[in-house]
Amino acid sequence: MKNWTDSELFDALCRGETDALNFIYRKFEPEVRQWICRNSGTPDEAADVFQEALLTIFDSYCGQQRQMSSFGGLLFNICRNKWLSQLRKNKRHEVVRMDVPERYQDTDDDLLARAIAAEEDFARQEALDKTFAMLSELCRNLLALVAQGLKPNDIVERLGMTNANAVYQRKKACIDRWRTLFHQHYAQKTTP
């Protein structure tokens, strides 16, 4: 089995490499599952948390100029935070063993802060994802074409609009709608 360094793992995860994902599952998932199961969770809940934590790292670290840290430590802290917030959300007041496996009792004081920041990035990306799906088909297509870097005149042709100005106006309206939906959704998610 290949030995991956932390930075190799971050890079390979961002590229979605199957080998790296399999390695991450083999190496880190049992420990997380064990911790969650010891803290009132089930193996299925642990698997959900672990999967979401990897997506969180993807959202927060991939394509961003972020300082790398211990991959395992960051992943474990993200999983722990997610599970604790789920327990709080579901008003499950079971005693939580706060003990962290020794190898994650890292000297990096910022690890917990990084995990919290990553969780916030993930929550925003999830809210954007959910609210984007609520937009009209025209808005979704228009914003996707703009993101692909198509010129307004090309978009006019593709979407059968009248002119470039109509593209700008429609795009602004779509963004406005998206912003409103996001605030509604994100406010709901973050209100205790």
Binding site: G16, F58, R179
Partner: peptide, 25 residues
């Protein structure tokens, strides 16, 4: 929003790979 739009397809692909890795594991 811009970041989301630029990475939307990659994010969906990543989600699919994650699901596959989870299933295999």
């Amino acid at each position: 929003m811009n970041r989301y739009l630029q990475r939307r397809e990659k994010r969906d692909a990543f989600k699919a790979r994650l699901a596959a890795a989870r299933a295999a594991h």
